[in-house]
């Protein structure tokens, strides 16, 4: 689905990513782990065209998407659930979901809206409320629902557990697993490594702009390097 090769990207003249390569097979759930500032968000932003990549290749189903604008990347089937959720606080829940379908011209937006409401009953209850009035967990569901409204084939999730209560985190990860099992390829960025490796089958570890380690979820869970750095005291 997604092939990233020697990607360099950053903000202004400084590259945060010093040439990273990763691969997300169709149907898989792959996670990208790493400490704060390692470049995880930068990686997702560069993949979807939110920030320009200075060099390297980003292939979506074999086609180069590196120089495309984000609106085009969304049309090609990539949706981002951004860090911090970024729902439109002064718009209703339903309008937030509908703007997620902005790039679509087909007539199935209505039935997809119903599908999101079936998945997240809370969003249905609160569909006329302003998004900013909801709890963090509900806003995270809304951010995921909004991304699903674009009918992505590849879903990028940036720190979906950030700032949420443990029970809510469990719900969110169950949802991610369900979305993946329903056929959407997932690339998940997380600081909560143990949670991420419970849904992902493969993982990469990012350290100051480089991939320092990669392997199957089992390998990562057993690697002393990963356990010490990212799993040591976590839940």
């Amino acid at each position: 689905m997604l092939e990233v090769r020697n990607l360099r990207a950053g903000y202004g003249a400084v590259d945060v990513l010093e040439g990273i390569s990763l691969s997300v097979p169709t149907g898989a759930c792959v996670c990208l782990l790493g400490a704060n500032g390692a470049g995880k968000t930068t990686t997702l932003s560069a993949i979807c065209g939110l920030i320009p990549a200075s060099s390297g290749e980003i292939l979506l189903e074999g086609r180069e998407i590196r120089r495309l604008r984000m609106e085009t990347v969304v049309r090609r089937g990539v949706s981002l659930v951004p860090e911090g959720r970024r729902v439109v606080a002064n718009m209703t829940v339903e309008d937030n979901l509908l703007v997620g379908a902005y790039t679509r011209g087909d007539d199935q937006v209505g039935s997809d809206l119903e599908a999101v409401y079936r998945r997240f009953g809370r969003l249905h209850q609160r569909r006329k409320q302003l998004a900013g009035s909801m709890s963090g967990g509900e806003q995270q569901m809304l951010a995921i629902g909004r991304a699903l409204m674009a009918r992505p084939r590849l879903l990028l999730l940036d720190e979906p557990s950030m700032g949420l209560a443990p029970q809510v985190v469990n719900d969110i990860f169950r949802t991610i697993r369900e979305i993946n099992e329903a056929g959407t390829t997932v690339l998940l960025v997380e600081q909560n490594a143990r949670k991420a490796l419970s849904v992902a089958s493969y993982g990469y570890v990012l350290e100051t702009g480089r991939i320092s380690f990669e392997g199957s979820a089992d390998t990562l869970l057993k690697s002393s390097q990963v356990v010490e750095a990212y799993l040591g005291d976590a839940s």
């Binding site: 969304v74 703007v99 790039t103």
Partner: peptide, 23 residues
């Protein structure tokens, strides 16, 4: 309208608009 929601999203944040694919 879809354009109206896009306008309100751009007004809220241009980055958020880009994220959902609004030109």
């Amino acid at each position: 309208s879809s354009t109206g929601r896009a306008i309100r999203t751009v007004a809220f944040s241009e980055d958020v608009a880009r994220i959902v694919g609004v030109p």
